[in-house]
């Protein structure tokens, strides 16, 4: 493909088992987005989204999950995709989870709805076997 494209980076894969892993994922996301040519603000958005999703894995999925970052082309634009997967009990009510102020762990209740606003797209697949969240941001 296009060799000059700055985003043909290896995907970043981080297992999430610990809050230290979440911080590591956030750091990696910031570097990854900047290496893909995203502006400082957008890179910060992506890193924050990664940390929110990582914290969710820690809080709701018994610390068993992973986060993968990839970069892709969409037409001529670069897209970063975050995939956060876990084998937790799943999200009971997705619409409710996307409502501002709703929380089950005494948090601020704006993590997941916040991620929806920080990113361009948010897809949630969930069952009692686990949850897979795909979030995309275009440059």
């Amino acid at each position: 493909m296009n060799d000059e494209a700055p985003c043909l980076l290896d995907a970043v894969h981080i297992p999430i088992q610990d809050y230290a892993d979440v911080a590591e994922a956030g750091r990696n996301a910031l570097l990854f987005a900047e290496a893909c040519g995203f502006s400082k603000v957008l890179a910060y958005y992506i890193a924050t989204a990664v940390i929110e999703l990582g914290n969710n894995i820690m809080a709701h999925a018994d610390s068993d999950g992973s986060i993968v970052l990839t970069s892709q082309f969409e037409d001529t634009r670069i897209v970063i995709e975050i995939i956060a997967e876990d084998r937790g009990p799943g999200i009971f009510d997705v619409d409710l989870a996307l409502t501002d102020g709703y929380t089950t762990n005494n948090g601020l209740g704006c993590g997941l709805p916040g991620v929806a606003r920080l990113m361009d797209e948010l897809h949630i697949e969930t069952s009692d076997q686990g949850t897979r969240i795909r979030a995309r941001k275009r440059r």
């Binding site: 400082k40 603000v41 890179a43 910060y44 709805p113 916040g114 606003r117 920080l118």
Partner: peptide, 14 residues
């Protein structure tokens, strides 16, 4: 607070 931090907090709704 950095400008990016401020914008992110607003997006998050905090």
């Amino acid at each position: 607070m950095s400008p990016e931090g401020a914008q992110t907090l607003v997006k998050l709704g905090v």
